[in-house]
Amino acid sequence: METARHRNTWHIHPDPEALARRLAAAVARMAREAITARGAFHLVVAGGTTPRAAYALLPQLGSDWQCWHLYHGDERCLPPQDPDRNSLMLDTVWLSRVPIPTRQIHHIPAERGADVAARDYAAVLPPHAFDLVLLGVGEDGHTASLFPGHDWGMAKNGPATIAVHDAAKAPPQRVSLSGWRLQYTREMFFMAAGGGKRSALTAWRQGEPIPAATVGTTADIWLDNTAWPEVVPGTI
Rank of each mutant, 00 (worst) to 15 (best):
M191G: 08
A110W: 02
F41I: 04
T9A: 13
P109Y: 01
T161G: 03
S178I: 05
A212K: 13
A167C: 10
V98C: 12
V231G: 06
L58Q: 09
L201H: 01
H69Q: 14
N86A: 10
R112E: 14
A18N: 13
C77Y: 04
L134Q: 07
W68Y: 10
R22S: 13
I108A: 01
S96I: 05
R186N: 09
I236P: 13
I210Y: 00
A167T: 05
T143I: 05
A155C: 11
A26V: 07
D82G: 08
P127C: 07
L95D: 00
R21S: 13
L43Y: 04
L125W: 12
P109E: 03
E230V: 04
G149A: 06
G196R: 10
N8Q: 15
T202H: 08
S63R: 14
G234E: 04
G194F: 00
R21E: 09
T235K: 01
A24K: 01
A28N: 05
V27W: 02
G113T: 07
Q104T: 05
H165I: 06
P229R: 09
T49H: 14
C67A: 15
A28G: 09
L95I: 12
H13V: 08
Q66E: 14
G39A: 07
V232K: 01
R29C: 11
V45G: 07
A144T: 09
G141S: 06
V44N: 04
E75W: 04
M154C: 09
H142L: 04
Y121G: 01
L135P: 04
A122E: 04
L78R: 09
M1G: 15
R174V: 07
D140Q: 09
F190R: 00
V93S: 06
R5I: 15
N225F: 06
V124Q: 07
D220K: 14
A170K: 08
D131W: 02
A34I: 01
N225K: 14
E187Q: 14
G216H: 06
D84G: 14
P83M: 04
H13I: 02
H142Y: 03
